[in-house]
């Protein structure tokens, strides 16, 4: 089992500065399918699935290793090194923004630039810190996942079958999109929403761009501003796109912002 098959690493394009795109909690590398191809002309693009998501090797899932974001960051470092990435660009969405920050601290040679889309170093409010959620709300989320109440297996399966309206999404693609083992999803949710990486921000040395959505309930603007204020020399761009997934809802705006930055 190589890191390439373990994380279902897919590369495309060619160029002097490799770009690694990392998906967040919920779906898989298809999150980037409307964004990554725009960079293939000038860059080697690298897409992958976190272990437990998409078409990664579920057998490689280790509850201990992935109980903290460090486990995911270690994987990212392994992927970067396996592909001989140095001085590359990291683009991470949602929780993967912090995974990229951790990886850049573990292996500073990998990335000279970080693009953090909807980052949050801590989702739960703390004294003097606004994360957007109370501990009770996060517990409710984790409990509701455990209850299977959001329709994990029962309701997701029919939703991803067939797609007459958009035939360009082949069945293979739709079937893998957002497919997650419920037990792993629960653990990933716990790891994601109980993480606290505020202390790591100040040690970042890579150039950093924060892409902040308007009206993002998961990573509110105040949280994006906190990240900007704590990563030395970072800049934040507020997108017109609303919601938590501008890479899907406003790919052109995201592409333009990344291009301007790099």
């Amino acid at each position: 089992m190589t890191v390439i098959t373990r994380n279902h690493v897919v590369t495309a394009g060619a160029g002097h500065r490799p770009m690694i795109f990392a998906h967040g909690f919920g779906c898989d590398q298809n999150m980037w399918r409307l964004v990554a191809p725009a960079f293939e002309a000038d860059h080697l693009t690298v897409l992958f699935d976190h272990v437990g998501a998409g078409r990664s090797d579920l057998a490689a899932y280790d509850a201990g290793k992935y109980s903290s974001l460090d486990g995911y960051a270690d994987d990212l470092v392994e992927i970067g090194r396996a592909l001989d990435v140095t001085g590359g660009v990291f683009v991470g969405h949602s929780v993967s923004a912090m995974i990229g920050v951790l990886a850049s601290l573990k292996a500073p040679e990998l990335f000279e630039s970080l693009v953090l889309v909807g980052p949050s170093p801590r989702y739960i409010d703390a004294e003097g810190y606004f994360g957007g959620f109370t501990a009770a709300q996060i517990e409710e989320l984790l409990a509701s996942l455990a209850d299977n109440h959001m329709g994990w297996s029962a309701a997701m399966a029919p939703a991803i079958m067939g797609n007459a309206d958009r035939p360009e999404l082949g069945e293979e693609l739709t079937n893998s999109f957002c497919r997650t083992d419920p037990a792993i999803a629960r653990q990933f949710a716990r790891t994601t929403f109980t993480a606290d990486n505020r202390a790591d921000l100040g040690r970042v040395t890579a150039r950093t761009l924060i892409l902040q959505c308007s009206d993002d309930i998961i990573a509110p603007e105040a949280v994006g501003a906190y990240v900007r204020d704590n990563i030395p020399g970072s800049e934040m761009k507020v997108l017109r796109a609303t919601g938590h997934c501008p890479n899907l809802s406003a790919p052109a705006e995201v592409i333009a912002a990344i291009r301007d930055f790099i």
């Binding site: 959620f133 409990a143 509701s144 999404l169 929403f193």
Partner: peptide, 27 residues
């Protein structure tokens, strides 16, 4: 709130990707 997080991380992207979703359980 829990439903919102789940909706934003799963069903909203699913809707964007596929143009639809079916039989999604919501509270």
């Amino acid at each position: 709130i829990a439903g919102q997080i789940f909706y934003e991380t799963h069903f909203a992207p699913l809707l964007r990707m596929q143009g639809f979703f079916d039989e999604v359980a919501l509270d």
